[in-house]
Design a protein around this nucleic acid. Structure first.
Length: 484
RNA sequence: GGCGCGUUCGUCUAGGGGUCAGGACAUCGGGCUCUCAAUCCGGAAACACGGGUUCGAUUCCCGUACGCGCUACCA
């Protein structure tokens, strides 16, 4: 039973790539990588009305961003119509399928009646009994028809790699349509023909396809094709326990991209959603995911998407990533970010920030004070940390010491401050908080002395002096802040 | 309605006939600390329900409930 593994991810371009699709793609990718097989991308665009080129582009870009690279060219289902029609003709010829001349309206009425009377609806099989001459007459009269599969008696069974043994009585399966009256084949037919032609060995897809599988197996058998193995992945749910969708806010891969998540973090989180690695490890590189991945370890139960945990995973990956990589990603996310600033300086900022924030975007939004003097001072903090005249005295003293300082390092900056505090008989933190406010304008941020070292002597002295002029004004005024 | 699938802390999960039902995120409390974050320590928090089988069931079996999916000339 040794044959190369070939899997595929087959989204329909009727929407953007969402988290469920991304996870399906990921598990296919992991399975292929783990078994040294290949991973293909097929776009299922047989629904002409709903398929859009922009979605094809979006799905492709999302997969690339995630790093889920596929082998070979993208297969477009719409370009494979000849093969689909050939299969339909074969089934027709072998009397395994039949033409149905019922109109959509007729069928709709039948279904409504059936539902009204509380019965489960199945196609009546009306056209199954048409005689050859009747069929010819209708065809000659250019009556439109679709093609239905003639479901045989019996039972269809298969063993799902995740769900185990599944069996269905064939009588539960309707004579479903495999070709529309416009000549276009439908999903259950195309998927079989394409998977078969692409020699897919393992069909890994969402659980919503579990009940389609027996139908497809029937087609494989009728066509005399080898049946691949199946693995169905549990659904991803929103907080309301419903299948995740746009309704739940962010669910598209690109939205997470834009929000500044790292692709490896998203993959890591998605992998953990519904799969257990059999260890206590939570943070994985993609290579580690590949090595550890076992499809048998995938859950049967649907999982709720939890952005809080994603955020935590993201923070872990941020801290682990090289500043160079983060820099490149920030630039790709936001090409204009500090474009005139020296790259080494930016790299040092990232060194400092990556340990305390969780997304790329936070490096951008929380680093202003590295580039510009504070325009305003946080009023609450000003009231708290710059309460009286003694602060002015302390800051003046610190300025004095700093201006004479030769070696401008985190260490010397700190010792100067602490010596001063002791000399003046105040707690060091009092001075530290005031200095932070003067230098950044806000009450939180990375280590003050590290920050000051990086900013350099000139800037720090300037900011301290300016603060000395502006902050005491806050004491007298009732205004909510001191603007520039 | 029919069929299929599922059900362990709020969430992701481990476990499996006898366990203090374990871990992670989130949450709460504390330590460290110049703030925020990170980190460390600690707390609260779960076997859907009912019947069997058994000395014993969260674990095995059968039901019920609930949820999800499919039931389209969507994929």
């Amino acid at each position: 039973m040794k044959y190369p593994v070939r899997v595929r991810f087959a989204p329909s371009p009727t929407g953007t790539l969402h988290l469920g699709g991304a996870r399906t793609a990921l598990f296919n990718y992991l399975y292929a990588a783990k078994h040294k097989g290949c991973f293909h991308l097929r776009i299922e665009d047989t629904d002409v009305k709903r398929s859009k080129q922009e979605y094809v582009d979006e799905i492709r870009d999302s997969l690339r961003w995630l790093g889920l690279n596929w082998d070979g060219p993208i297969v477009f289902q719409s370009e494979r119509k000849t093969n689909h029609r050939y299969a339909v003709r074969q089934l027709l010829k072998a009397d395994k399928a039949y033409r149905c001349f019922c109109t959509v309206e007729e069928l709709k009425k039948e279904r409504e009646n059936a539902i009204k009377s509380g019965m489960g609806y199945q196609y009546s099989g009306k056209c199954l009994d048409l005689t050859l001459s009747q069929i010819k007459l209708k065809i000659n009269g250019a009556e439109p028809f679709c093609v239905r599969l003639k479901i045989p008696r019996g039972m269809t069974k298969f063993t799902d790699l995740i769900y185990g043994k599944i069996s269905v009585m064939n009588k539960e399966i309707d004579d479903f349509i495999i070709q529309r009256s416009d000549g276009n084949p439908t999903y259950n037919l195309t998927v079989v023909v394409d998977d078969s032609d692409m020699e897919i060995t393992h069909v890994i897809r969402g659980e919503d396809h579990l009940t389609n599988t027996p139908k497809q197996i029937l087609i494989y058998k009728m066509l005399g094709k080898r049946i691949p193995k199946f693995a169905h992945l549990p659904m991803i749910l929103g907080p309301d326990m419903k299948r995740l969708s746009k309704r739940h806010g962010a669910s598209g891969v690109q939205e997470f991209h834009r929000q500044g998540y790292l692709p490896q973090a998203l993959l890591n989180y998605l992998a953990l959603l519904g799969w257990n690695p059999d260890t206590d490890q939570e943070i994985f590189t993609v290579d580690e995911l590949i090595n550890n991945f076992r499809i048998e370890q995938v859950q049967k139960k649907a999982a709720v998407f939890d952005e809080k945990k994603l955020l935590w995973v993201s923070g872990q990956h941020m801290a682990q990533s090289s500043s160079k990589e983060l820099f490149d990603r920030i630039r790709r996310l936001n090409p204009d970010w500090q474009i005139d600033t020296d790259k080494d300086y930016l790299l040092r900022i990232i060194d400092i920030q990556k340990k305390r924030i969780k997304k790329l975007s936070e490096i951008i939004t929380q680093s202003d004070f590295f580039f510009e003097d504070p325009g305003t001072y946080d009023p609450k903090t000003a009231k708290k940390r710059w309460r009286d005249e003694t602060i002015n005295k302390l800051i003046r003293g610190y300025i004095h010491r700093l201006s004479q300082l030769e070696e401008w390092t985190e260490k010397t900056l700190e010792s100067e401050l602490r010596e001063l505090a002791e000399e003046m008989n105040v707690g060091a933190s009092k001075l530290i908080h005031a200095t932070r406010l003067a230098i950044t304008g806000i009450p939180h941020g990375p280590s003050l002395f590290l920050l000051m070292e990086l900013l350099g002597k000139a800037i720090c002295l300037r900011r301290l002096k300016v603060a000395l002029e502006r902050l005491p004004l806050l004491l007298d005024s009732d205004e909510e802040g001191v603007g520039s």
